[in-house]
Design a protein around this nucleic acid. Sequence first.
DNA 1: ACCTAGAGTTTGAGTCGTCAAACTCATGTG
DNA 2: CACATGAGTTTGACGACTCAAACTCTAGGT
Lengths: 225, 225
Amino acid sequence: MLASETVENYLKAIYLVQREAATDEAPMGKIAASLGVTPGSATSMVKKLVAARLARHERFGGVRLTARGTRAALDILRRHRLVETFLVDTLGLDWSVVHDEAERLEHAISPLVLDALDRHLGRPAFDPHGDPIPRADGALQESEAMPMSELGVGDAARLVRVLDQRGDSLRFLRASGLKVGAGLRIVAIEPGAGVMRIRPDGGAVVSMSTTAASRVLVRPMRGRG
Amino acid sequence: MLASETVENYLKAIYLVQREAATDEAPMGKIAASLGVTPGSATSMVKKLVAARLARHERFGGVRLTARGTRAALDILRRHRLVETFLVDTLGLDWSVVHDEAERLEHAISPLVLDALDRHLGRPAFDPHGDPIPRADGALQESEAMPMSELGVGDAARLVRVLDQRGDSLRFLRASGLKVGAGLRIVAIEPGAGVMRIRPDGGAVVSMSTTAASRVLVRPMRGRG
DNA sequence: ACCTAGAGTTTGAGTCGTCAAACTCATGTG
DNA sequence: CACATGAGTTTGACGACTCAAACTCTAGGT
Ligand SMILES: [Mn+2]
Ligand SMILES: [Mn+2]
Ligand SMILES: [Mn+2]
Ligand SMILES: [Mn+2]
């Protein structure tokens, strides 16, 4: 709203980097990398965010959003994920392309349009990738899930979320029958090769690296192991 | 696409100013005014458009888009009007607010999203204000219509288009029952006061200045005068 | 304790789009 | 025909954002 498109992108990037850091601080280099910008650019923008009381930062330390910064980031994340949901559910686009589209559209959505979109979509709680959609008041509840890579041979599970937003990853998953809500079973693990073999319900067995599998979140089901 | 958001706004503005000029040339001052920018800013941007072969211009003369510039402007106009149609038809927003929303969204719509939107809306030919939507190939057909101000007392007509995009004008028209497609009849004209009185089908008589009425386009119907 | 590799910061410069204010031009009225 | 008026242009400056490259700090290993 008050923030420029660039500031919005930084806030969202810092929020996401911060979430995935153990220390809950976003390293400057990861912020820069996630925005495709040099570390120098990130440093100078973070200075502005600090001046605007949206982030805290001390020289050579990590970046942490303030309450206001976090609130703003969640607002942008809400726009992003509602737009993704709209693009898939209403317009029928593939889940592998909507992230990039939403990356631009998220900045052009007014509160009025956002609310109309939310109502039109039936106030969804999750986006097409299983990411939770922050509510209008900023509430965000992550779903209970574990990395698919932690399952054992014979374990059954339901796919609930895909963290990797890269188009080719998403296209591979869709082509394999691994979509949000799908059931699956681990049929083999090759620790030496770093590969696991997975059978989606009603589909053919596919192989994935365990690192790729660690970015796919599942909810285990009781099923004969 | 290749053009920045600012360049897109200039192209669209020049196109629209050019269309309403008798000479088919856009005066620099009108371009500047329609964008809310100083004449100096418009002059320097037009220089860039000329360098990019999107417009032609000679010092102290009018601005005229090249074929490429016109094509680009029509593409932006298509995005703008399809977005407006979506906001009204799909999201249920009021026609008085969608222009400003579309002014931002039009720059964030990729060809992929545009086509999905077009299909979802049933490839509409007109936007909520009755403005024709340029086709994907750049074809644009203006509808046959005359200013309501040129009707005489007793004439019946159908409202086909509203040129004025100002929110309060549109809210007044909607509140009066004067929406696109509505029938109406002129019940009185006061040339001295510059006012005409109109009765929308099934509604109460309302007064409008003839200048306001000249921005409302109608198609006359055979009806007893 | 040192010292180095890597992470982060600073500086200086460049692009884009804007404005204010000084300037130039075209025109039509006296 | 002069010249005032208004339209358009130029200039110089600024803010927002970016990069390359020089610089500085921190941490880990020896
Ligand atoms: Mn973005
Ligand atoms: Mn998502
Ligand atoms: Mn616009
Ligand atoms: Mn319109």
